[in-house]
Write a protein that binds this DNA or RNA. Structure first.
Lengths: 254, 254
DNA sequence: TGCTGTGAATCGCTTCACAGCC
DNA sequence: GGCTGTGAAGCGATTCACAGCA
């Protein structure tokens, strides 16, 4: 059942910790918002608040990229936007294919956040012949028979799988065989890939289950401890750490 | 800008590490599949392969739940399914509301993985009056004016936000005020919530950016090192760690 | 003998706290 | 004086390796 590895835990990516890489997009978004409001500089404290992390972490993260700030002043917004974009590889064009144009695939195709960040939906692919030719988000859906040709003609290296779970592994194999080396998987399956191929997974049902776990505990505490009321907010006002943070996975639809 | 905390890093949930909680749904899925094939018992090695983790990690994870295995034999599938479900709080009914019935919201409403795991879509809510009454996935969409009443009437404690970024914080505030204490956020925004409310975030664009980062590095290596070919598969055949694992966040649509 | 359960070692990330520079 | 950049400490998670039990 040999499942291939995924995002290289071993060889840390050019000295930048995975945890840091995963936060760069967060900073980038916050910075982009500042940039749009023509804010020239920002302190680690302000930017951290906007990104929902604490400032020490942010400074440490930036220190892996280089010394891009000015002591006593802060960071130049435009400069940082550029540096982070470059580091993430967003200064180049990434053609992406989406396979499986159901509800979710269509939602992804319509998602505006793509184009804004160097990603370009090069093609939509579905196994249903009835879908072929039908435009979704202005892009005509193509039949999966042509998957290999589409990948090669467009020089696609990133694929998004939004098929039912049953089809995911097969689609994955074909994508990989055709040259795709990064996969974003929305199907609730563990994909097997050869070494050198990255897989990331987004899974709604897992996220909900994690919430349920904590929700259950809240209810339990309430009933148990004679404490009565809600937890006395000890440390409020900063931090935030939203999303899978010290945590991990996530699964998805069928 | 006081953003509230999120999934309690401090007080570890009843002794079970967050990282373990985040993997339980993964194990549960693998076990459910085995159960459907009427497999009676499974070893840590087999189950780990099916879930895409390594066996030591899996055994350690299970050890936090109790000693549910049998040395020399393995784990009883049905028993484990029950124990994990109970631990995650999936033996009870969790009514969920989805706010923002665009492409994504509709995809979520149609997502089958909900019902199968104790989750029930209690209501769909949208701000567009034109949507009101229209059924999506067999459930009539209700107008957001009635949000508070819907939450209270249905005893909802988990809310899913699939609105545009601009509306997310406001929707979040109303959900929280109405009694929701767990939020799954698909909008690309950092949400501010009071202490005691959990937020998890799912963000497509962040996942893609992380893939782009690694993809860029692959290309760079190829060009740089005189190595020529693909990386020599050093450690293949096990592990897998798909998805945000040692990593973290994720962002999303607008 | 085979596989679980777990202390001990290790690893990586986060946080602290302060030196260094504007 | 203020804010960045970073060694050092702290902490949680992973991995190792083996004792313990069926």
């Amino acid at each position: 059942m040999a499942t291939g590895r995924t995002h290289r835990p071993a060889t840390r990516s050019r000295g930048i910790p995975e945890a840091t890489v995963a936060r760069l997009p967060l900073y980038l978004r916050a910075l982009t918002a500042l940039s749009e409001r023509s804010v020239p500089t920002v302190s680690s404290e302000e930017l951290a608040a906007a990104a929902g992390v604490n400032s020490a972490k942010l400074r440490k993260d930036f220190s892996y990229l280089g010394s891009y700030g000015t002591r006593g002043v802060g960071y130049d917004v435009e400069y940082l936007v550029y540096q982070i974009s470059r580091e993430l590889g967003l200064t180049q064009d990434w053609p992406v294919v989406i396979v499986g144009i159901g509800n979710l695939g269509a939602a992804l195709a319509n998602y505006g956040g793509f184009a804004s960040r160097g990603f370009r939906v090069a093609a939509l692919i579905d196994a249903d012949p009835a879908m072929a030719g039908k435009p979704v988000a202005g892009i005509p859906v193509q039949h999966s028979d042509d998957l290999e040709k589409i990948i090669q003609d467009n020089g696609v290296s990133i694929g998004v799988i939004a098929t039912p779970a049953g089809a995911a592994q097969q689609v994955c194999d074909r994508l990989v065989a055709a040259g795709v080396t990064s996969i974003l998987n929305f199907a609730p399956t563990v994909l097997s890939v050869p070494d050198g191929v990255d897989v990331r997974k987004v899974d709604l049902s897992i996220e909900l289950q994690i919430l349920a776990f904590h929700e259950q505990r809240k209810a339990g505490e309430e009933a148990a401890s004679g404490d009565g009321a809600l937890p006395t907010a000890a440390a409020r006002s900063e931090s935030a750490d939203q999303g899978p943070d010290g945590d991990m996975p996530a699964v998805m639809p069928a």
